[in-house]
Nucleic acid binder design. Sequence first.
DNA 1: GGGTAGATATATCGGACCGATATACAGAAC
DNA 2: GTTCTGTATATCGGTCCGATATATCTACCC
Lengths: 192, 192
Amino acid sequence: MLELAILGLLKERSMHGYQLSKRLTDTLGGFWRVSYGSLYPSLKRLERQGAVEQVFDVQEVGRRKNVYRITQLGETMFRRLLEEAGSDATGEDNRFRVRLAFFKYLAPDSRIRLLERRRAFLEERLDAITASLPTQRDTYTLSLVQHGRETTEQDIAWLNGLIAAERRATETTTGRTKRRSTRTARRKERTT
Amino acid sequence: MLELAILGLLKERSMHGYQLSKRLTDTLGGFWRVSYGSLYPSLKRLERQGAVEQVFDVQEVGRRKNVYRITQLGETMFRRLLEEAGSDATGEDNRFRVRLAFFKYLAPDSRIRLLERRRAFLEERLDAITASLPTQRDTYTLSLVQHGRETTEQDIAWLNGLIAAERRATETTTGRTKRRSTRTARRKERTT
DNA sequence: GGGTAGATATATCGGACCGATATACAGAAC
DNA sequence: GTTCTGTATATCGGTCCGATATATCTACCC
């Protein structure tokens, strides 16, 4: 995940570790502050693999700053990691966030596929939460689970918005080719 | 974190690993499904430390099931871990969820203190998010960050509810003992 | 009986990531 | 001048994850 994030950020412009860390906490909306204990080793690993390389600015004399630039191999790695079907929609929530942050590099249909898988995952989580609700006898765990339910519902609503927008964009593009087809009725087909 | 969770669950009743895993995903509202790759080693570690011990049920003959019971030492450890001011309100979100799940074992004033620290942390996060909003030029990261902002706001509102409820409970209790003293003015005294 | 499918149950390995900690230099504040 | 805050890199021990392997129990069908 970290490798994907680093490569994705370095695609935009070359940076050093400290900057990467800041940009990362920014684009991830405050969740997941990367630890330097993972960032710097990861950066070195990527350099060893030839995915990134150091940029030596002649201007900079005094202060030590390890500025990295993404290589061709790094670009390829980035594509592979981004496309990879892995446990991205599933599993830890930040996994999905990182992928979403680099959605612009993904093909529209891949985007929709990923969003839908994420939604399916969250709907499963929602079902599990709802099922576990009546078993909560403790005030605090009850509140915790209820709040979790609401948050999950809002996450799903947000995803629905993203999916709809993505479809609209696709439709407009294809619509330019094949005129009429203002159909928006989509089949929900919940696998329950 | 896992140790705290295990001990807290074993306080209610003795269980084996598989049961612990299920109960944990339940009480945590679907976030954080513990991996067996951390659960079983953790259980062994706790046994080695004398915090838990195996229960041998004579009835059970066939199937191997390692049922664990919390010991006196384990109870002490649980107290320590729960009380511990560590990076609980701060840092990873599940840390806080686990603590909240065992709030009933915490003194009311400790509860309020923890909730307020959590709120302060989330407010800082909210500020950071708001500050980073105008820098987002990408549609997707913008949406991501905006959604993060809303989620954080709702988290804070939820915390406010919990804090209010906690205060109401405290007030009623102390009111019964020492009549007047509707003092609610709290000194924030941020240790910055 | 035989087959197999799915839930229950434990275990381990390599590696990703964290949290704490140390170090050092820059610029501003006073 | 000194002190404080922000920038910057580095490393260590340890927790936790994800994949994988294995075995048993229950339930169902043929």
